[in-house]
Amino acid sequence: MIKLNPYQKILLPSIKGLSSNCPFPVQKKIVRFLLLPIFEEARLDGDLEFLSHRRIGLAISDIDYQATLSLENGHLTLASSSATERPPDAIIRGNLSAFIQLANRAEDPDSLFFQRRLSIEGDTDLALEVKNVIDTVDLDRLPEWLKKALSLSQRMNKHFLDKKAF
């Protein structure tokens, strides 16, 4: 019999449930709240301009969640990814664990890509720009609460999500 680990039993279904049941306006607020401080410097440097009129999708495969991001008044925001909208110009796809590691700089995106834990579809140049902008974020300068949230996510990942732990 296959033994389910806590990741498969509880955590992943919970996150999946939360994200799929969360109404879009609430999602949008949360995403905005999280992204604003992270990309503020990049925005001021004009490093986000490449995203105007373009849409980047982030697909988290193991929780069936896909977010489409684009610019709204110069700020990075969650865009509706309903069927009526045009599809994202590029999609970065991976498991939740890979994204958490990326956000924490615990793993290098190219390495994840070589190992097939991340994939890119569509406009490779756009995906590369997104990757490079994420790389320019100075994690040391983030607000304390965000740093704590990130490191919590990393701990959670290490103990529950990263399946190498089991």
Binding site: R105, A106, E107, D108, P109, D110, S111, K131, D135
Partner: peptide, 10 residues
């Protein structure tokens, strides 16, 4: 130079 800070650190 095209790689991430994580790569450089390692």
């Amino acid at each position: 130079r095209q790689r991430s800070p994580a790569y450089v650190a390692q």
